[in-house]
Design a protein around this nucleic acid. Sequence first.
DNA 1: CCTACCGATCGGTAGG
DNA 2: CCTACCGATCGGTAGG
Lengths: 195, 195
Amino acid sequence: MSKTARGQRSVDAVLDAALEQVSREGLDSLTIGQLATASGMSKAGLFAHFGSRENLQLATIERARTRFVNLVIVPSLGASGPRVRLLKMIDNWIRYLTNLDDAGGCPLGLSQIEFARRQGPVSTRLAEVQRELDALLLSMVVAAVEAGEISKNVNPVDVIFQIEAIMSHALFRGQLLSEPDVYTRAKTLIVSLIA
Amino acid sequence: MSKTARGQRSVDAVLDAALEQVSREGLDSLTIGQLATASGMSKAGLFAHFGSRENLQLATIERARTRFVNLVIVPSLGASGPRVRLLKMIDNWIRYLTNLDDAGGCPLGLSQIEFARRQGPVSTRLAEVQRELDALLLSMVVAAVEAGEISKNVNPVDVIFQIEAIMSHALFRGQLLSEPDVYTRAKTLIVSLIA
DNA sequence: CCTACCGATCGGTAGG
DNA sequence: CCTACCGATCGGTAGG
């Protein structure tokens, strides 16, 4: 293995530890000292990799985004037909939110809410990622409407607003109140939304 | 004015400063040193009042809960009929979320999400407050159904799940993406939900 | 990637 | 309510 390849693997391992922390307590709780302990590296070693705490936060966001794309979006693309594709993505999304191994939760969602009223590169990047998701969901809903699989009477922007609202609220209630059936409820509501 | 009355006014002023901080950056960002500076008091003075950082957090939650009750719930109780009462509460709620003076935002909502996966008295209290809101909304929806103002075909638990999801997501998008029309959209969706 | 260090701030205490 | 202080941890740097 090349030296850079080993370096990348090391960085990825650190970012996975970062994702676990962010999923539990948010991007604000991600400190260099804590991450150094969690990943078995020295604080100065982490600085050599990331340059600043803000760059570490930004790198963690990119890692979370890649995970979401790989676990939620990509596995849904093969489904036949726009509506089935959208429903497949919802299933993947729920599995992603409820997978308590392997970083689980939703580091991006939690961080977006944490930084919603702040200024700076972290908040800006989190808003961009949200707009990316909006655009993807909108294209999926519009495609389903054009294919005649979703009623032409619905407003696609309203639909994606509600899909995101339902998913986000399900995660919140599942975590704060430990409601076991909240994801079933979410799925059912989304299905009837795009009937 | 009595000594205890003056003491209470002083505590309330400190908690209002705390609410402003929590509304912007969350309960985790509330430190004794920062609050001392913001409220013009010494750190040790704050300790004399609250005893610990955790007690300060709990007191801030109670202050936020009281504000929500006074600004959102109480002014809706006079409306005639369960459905009008519910809609009046939604209007108050939107005004509360968008009032950027006087602490604005939603300190409780942000804190609940921040602490959703943590253990301890703060998280426990935040969950209790959420269950209180659930019970109130449920009683309002059930009353409207019994009065024949909302269709008997809807599941009240689904309705309050969606109302909360829509309000929470509107706040999120309003803050992170500065969408100007997001509260109009939220209101419209809720109205059609309880048609 | 490391050890060793910097000034600032954290929650909290002593003593008044 | 205050000043003055404690040990721990913060982000970051020097030097290797």
